[in-house]
Design a protein around this nucleic acid. Structure first.
Length: 460
RNA sequence: UCCCCAGUAGCUCAGCAGGUAGAGCAAGUGGCUGUUAACCACUUUGUCCGCGGUUCGAGUCCGUGCUGGGGAGCCA
């Protein structure tokens, strides 16, 4: 008796004798002398149909099987006499591992995403969420494959950081001290009592660390969790999310845009090729245009547009915007949506943003007005990638830090990299969940991450 | 954090102008059938989100809080 995944049985070329499968009952239909039981093991979207005849010694128990129950089936893979499927299993022995209580919340019908969020521990057992998380797994692998094939090294940057400002939003504080017992001196927290002897936070980006390794190993990337304590309540933001951050040496903003575009195209193409069956579900039930959109992303060039020209387009458009557009002001969501969703109807790379609205580490252009920053905007999602060429000149970088009100001493090691063999280098951050939203057509970030963390929500 | 919308059975929803609740699905029982979101018949189920108010009377109107959704800001 050989153990099989349902995926491999459904793809079998020939009938097979003496096989074993393990899984959970998705649905059951009784006939006069036997039952049809569909079992799923998570290996693929489809269930396999089991024929359990009343000759089986425990048939009375099998007849009472509830949805969600765990079973092990021994039998033969045979061609199905019915029309809905090629293969089915003729059960010779049918072990009931455990019975799911009839209060099992998942029913044989479509549930709303909002309801399924309240049972996030059970939702991966549904077709839709099973598909999401299989795709999530496949694309995680694809990320490593993409970068490894290009000669990038994978770097693990710290999750806990001592930098109190990495220039990307509010941070979660990390402490081992019970707040009830925290010692205060003149009303001020005494950080010398802290685990690290100074304030610590959860990382908002691995970029600064990755830069150090790029200057040693060459092109590198990180792929890990990232934390933002912003009180963001939108369908595109989570407090904990996964980010891919490549950092390339001897590389300018144009190379950076090239890599960003290639990455999105590769991962989209990978999903189209390797996750066909799961993607079909989304194309059928979530977004009818999905496959078309994804194919367009793979095949057509992204628009590249300097910020200044984007401002011009927006000013000349007849569209009525709530917020005014002018050089030096950051573009609002409505502007980005207009450019990517309506004007070009495809991904747009905006670059050369005004210096005044971007962080200290971005390279100052010759005009001294802009920095070598780039954002990749995608219809329906907005910003998928944010990146830049880094300021590699020590004197300019120090000046920018002063302008941005940062304490240089805290960044001594970062500045060291500009003293010892500094080179032009660039990188970006790609939001993994936003990529999954793009690939699946799912509209809410909470539905592409196993247990989403958002303001006021840390159940599970 | 701000603006808008919603909160009725396990799930999805109806309940039009204030008169104390209903459908489909699920669940339970029986029947039928190589079925496939199976089908047919019968049966069960409710602090109408919480609190306060208006009224003879509130699921329905008003206030407030909580939860969820959408949009904005912040960004990936």
């Amino acid at each position: 008796m050989k153990k099989y995944k349902i995926l491999s049985l459904l793809n079998s070329e020939t009938p097979l004798d003496s096989i074993v499968i393990n899984g959970w009952v998705r649905t059951k239909r009784d006939s006069s002398s036997f039952s049809f039981i569909e079992v799923n093991d998570g290996s693929c979207l489809k269930n396999i149909q089991i024929i359990a005849e009343n000759k089986l010694s425990n048939y009375n128990d099998i007849k009472k099987l509830s949805i969600g129950s765990a079973v092990t089936v021994y039998g033969d893979l045979a061609e199905s006499k019915g029309s809905g499927q090629k293969w089915e299993i003729q059960a010779k022995k049918f072990d009931i591992i455990s019975i799911a209580s009839d209060s099992y919340p998942l029913q044989k019908k479509r549930h709303t995403d909002e309801y399924l969020r309240t049972i996030a521990h059970l939702r991966p057992r549904t077709n839709k969420y099973g598909a999401v998380f299989r795709i999530r797994s496949e694309l995680s692998f694809a990320i490593h494959k993409f970068f490894r094939d290009k000669g990038f090294k994978y770097i693990h940057t710290p999750i806990i950081t001592g930098s109190d400002c990495e220039g990307a939003g509010e941070m979660f504080k990390v402490t081992a001290i019970d707040p009830e017992k925290a010692i205060k001196i003149n009303g001020q927290s005494d950080y010398s009592q802290e685990f690290f002897g100074k304030p610590a936070n959860l990382t908002v980006s691995g970029q600064l660390s990755a830069e150090m390794f790029a200057l040693a190993l060459g092109d590198v990337y990180t792929f890990g969790p990232t934390f933002r304590a912003e009180n963001s309540n939108t369908r595109r933001h989570a407090a904990e999310f996964w980010m891919i951050e490549p950092e390339m040496v001897f590389c300018d903003i144009n190379d950076d845009m090239d890599l960003g575009e290639q990455t999105i195209k590769y991962l989209t193409g990978y999903a189209l090729k390797e996750c066909k069956e799961d993607l079909e579900l989304f194309a059928t039930f979530v977004d009818k245009e999905l496959i078309n959109n994804l194919e367009n992303i793979c095949s057509s060039d992204f628009i590249r547009l300097p910020y200044e020209e984007a401002v011009k387009i927006l000013k000349e458009s007849k569209e009525k915007f709530e917020y005014e557009v002018s050089f030096g002001k950051d573009l609002q969501a409505e502007h980005e949506n207009y450019l990517a969703g309506q004007y070009f109807k495809k991904p747009v790379i905006l670059y050369n943003y005004p210096k005044s609205i971007k962080p200290f580490y971005m390279r100052v252009s010759d005009d001294d007005k802009t920095v070598a920053a780039m954002d990749i905007l995608v219809p329906g999602i907005g910003e998928l990638i944010g990146g830049s060429q880094r300021e590699e000149r020590l004197d300019v970088l120090e000046l920018r830090m002063e302008e941005c009100g940062l304490i240089k001493e805290n960044y001594w090691w970062y500045l060291d990299s500009r003293r010892f063999g500094t080179v032009p280098h660039s990188g970006f951050g790609l939001g993994f969940e936003r990529l999954l939203m793009l690939v699946t057509g799912i509209k809410n970030i909470r539905d592409v991450i196993p247990f989403p963390r958002t303001p006021g929500n840390i159940e599970f």
